[in-house]
């Protein structure tokens, strides 16, 4: 038989290999090495972490391919990179340089305010953000092979990550109790593809791997998200905007593995130095929130 590449099993499968792990934002090869040495299961290559994107303002775009390639050369673990929502040419460029996963991300300035990329058109797998079950299943319908709850990136405040994870996981539980006759109306009310709602009911979980993102800054934050029921965590600004990135990165990796063991969580939480300063996400003006980007 001919070997087949770029299949749905392959796309979903790489995300399954990342489960129980931490994916870290890095802006250069040195940070990527620090992340790999700390036990990251993948890195996200980008020019500025979300906290800096917030501070700088302006338009945030795909990173320089040369910088992404340097990070790909520096580490042996998978490398992800971000493109703007709806910017399928940035995605084509990222695919052509061989990144392992593309994040169609609300952290960058959207290129299309109505449509996301049709991700089934690509061989490379995509991860997308969501705030609720409808948004998650719309993205999967477009071909996302991995989902992350959005949280509020670049804040160091876990409150939005918790809100979105509870919303998605709560809806999955709710679907288990919805009669088959009521599923179409549930799909309509949530703006979710009917076939995927049915699949969630059969599986009792999301059809693809679901990580948490946006505001995780401490080992306790990471373990909180794991106990809520996500498969792993993204940490963006939380590591390299803290006082001792290498130590904090290793501690968060351990906290995701031992998320149910409070004595280990206590041990890894000791003497980590300054956490990132943080910004209260719940009181942030709506216009500054990145999570509302996505349709």
């Amino acid at each position: 038989m001919e070997a087949k590449t770029g299949t749905w099993t392959e796309k979903k499968g790489l995300a399954q290999m990342l489960k129980g792990g931490v994916i870290m934002d890095v802006v250069n090869a040195e940070q990527a090495k620090i992340a790999e040495d700390a036990g990251a299961c993948a890195v996200m290559a980008l020019e500025r972490v979300p906290a800096d994107i917030r501070a700088d303002g302006g338009v945030a775009r795909m990173s320089d391919p040369d910088m992404i390639l340097k990070i790909m050369d520096a580490v042996s673990i998978p490398v992800m990179a971000k493109c703007r929502i709806g910017h399928f040419v940035e995605a084509q460029i990222l695919e052509s340089i061989g990144v392992d996963y593309i994040d169609e991300s609300e952290v960058l300035t959207p290129a299309d305010e109505e449509h996301h990329i049709l991700k089934h058109n690509f061989k490379v797998p995509f991860v997308c953000g969501c705030r609720n079950i409808g948004e998650a299943l719309r993205r999967i319908g477009e071909g996302a092979a991995m989902i992350r709850t959005k949280g509020e990136a670049g804040t160091g405040d876990v409150v939005e990550a918790v809100r979105h994870a509870r919303s998605v996981i709560g809806a999955i539980k709710q679907i288990q109790n919805v009669d088959d006759e009521e599923l179409m109306t549930f799909a309509k009310n949530n703006g979710a593809p009917y076939e995927l709602i049915k699949e969630v009911k059969t599986l009792g979980r999301m059809p693809v791997v679901n990580f948490a993102a946006g505001g995780v800054a401490t080992p306790a934050d990471a373990a909180l998200m794991m106990q809520l029921g996500v498969d792993g965590v993204f940490v963006g600004s939380g590591i390299f905007k803290s006082g001792d990135p290498a130590k904090r990165a290793a501690a968060i990796v351990k906290s995701v593995t031992h998320y149910q063991d409070a004595s280990i969580l206590a041990e890894v939480s000791k003497n980590l130095g300054e956490a990132m300063v943080g910004r209260n996400a719940a009181h942030m003006p709506e216009a500054e929130k990145l999570a509302v980007r996505g349709w």
Binding site: M1, A3, T5, T9, G13, S76, G98, D100, V124, P125
Partner: peptide, 13 residues
């Protein structure tokens, strides 16, 4: 490790 290349080279057979 990673003997076949990157993710786009992953395959089923």
């Amino acid at each position: 490790r990673n003997a076949f290349g990157r993710q786009v080279d992953s395959f089923e057979t």
